[in-house]
């Protein structure tokens, strides 16, 4: 091996990391015990947080990156990748997460944005990033900034899948609408959705996003997870849905199996039996404008 030819943090490595998560469930956890439960249940990664989104909503105030102590405790507890959330535009929180050894940074609307104009310049980091998106244009703007993975924003901490469905349909429908367009029409579309034309052309050619596309924001049951997979997600993030349910361990295992067998209703039915109450959930239409998280960042 020629040591001088070692390369770290390339696009291939960052997007490759995201590819290894496909078909998997990434679970929000707030301590080492929850992280171990998630790993045991078959999670492909955990998101290390101070509070799950439902509790962030309830607490109010400014939501920031988790205490590094908490993140290190979770990193030390599991062998699967550990992700952490930084505020939109807060590149120093991202630098800290990278220095702590976090495997992927989520530049997340669940935390209070630090910059209302710019997202983090993610291409400059060795650690890969995942970012939320509500539609194709937003997804492609994040990829252009260096995101190695996209997830739907949904509406985090509600246990209500309706917004994740809306966003996944918008992204997948946006890609389908590119089919058969001429190069002139693709350029026009790129202007319309405010996305780089090269990325629009790449989506048109491949019939999918150039990076892995997960679903997040309101997934609470095995059926929700299988729904998002059938709508085209490569995998799912489950936030409050696991540790706000009546039986977190059984719910975690059931969601992993529902994602694995998302197109087999018999299996999804079987794993859904007797799980007890799912998280209570919120009606998204009753949220005040300042309580809606998905409109943070654009």
């Amino acid at each position: 091996m020629k040591l001088e030819e070692l390369r770290f943090g390339t696009e291939l490595i960052k997007r490759g990391f995201a590819s290894m998560q496909k078909g998997g469930v990434i679970m929000d956890v707030v301590n080492a015990e929850q992280a171990q439960l998630a790993e045991e249940a078959g999670a492909v990664a955990v998101m290390a947080l101070e509070r799950v989104p439902a509790d962030i909503r309830a607490a109010g105030g400014v939501a920031r990156m988790a205490d590094p102590q908490k993140i290190v405790e979770i990193i030390d507890a599991v062998s699967i990748p550990v992700m952490g959330k930084a505020r939109i535009g807060h590149f120093v929180e991202a630098q800290i997460l990278e220095a702590l050894g976090v495997d992927m940074v989520d530049e997340s609307e669940v935390l209070t944005p630090a910059d209302e104009q710019f997202h983090i310049d993610k291409a400059g980091f060795a650690v890969p990033f995942v970012c939320g998106a509500r539609n194709l244009g937003e997804a492609l703007r994040r990829i252009n900034e260096g995101a190695a993975m996209i997830r739907t924003k949904g509406e985090a901490g509600t246990g209500n899948v309706v917004e994740a469905v809306r966003h996944m349909r918008a992204i997948m429908g946006g890609i389908r609408a590119l089919k058969g367009l001429s190069s002139q029409e693709l350029a026009d579309c790129a202007r319309d959705i405010e996305a780089p034309v090269e990325l629009v052309i790449e989506c048109a050619e491949r019939g999918r996003l150039p990076v892995v596309n997960f679903s997040a924001g309101g997934i609470a049951t095995p059926a929700d997870a299988a729904l998002m997979m059938q709508l085209g997600a490569d995998g799912v993030f489950v936030g409050s849905g696991i540790f706000k349910s009546a039986n977190p361990e059984a719910t975690a295992r059931a969601i992993v199996e529902a994602v694995n067998h998302y197109d087999d209703a018999k299996v999804v039915a079987e794993v859904s039996r007797g799980l007890g109450a799912a998280m209570k959930g919120l009606d998204v239409h009753l949220l005040r404008e300042d309580e809606v998280l998905q409109t943070r960042g654009r």
Binding site: M1, K2, R7, F8, G9, S79, V102, D103, V127
Partner: peptide, 17 residues
């Protein structure tokens, strides 16, 4: 040995014989 290189930032590309 699993994860023999450390964290994701230690992941790498190398020209290998």
């Amino acid at each position: 040995a699993r994860n023999a290189f450390g964290r994701q930032v230690d992941s790498r590309e190398a020209m290998l014989e």
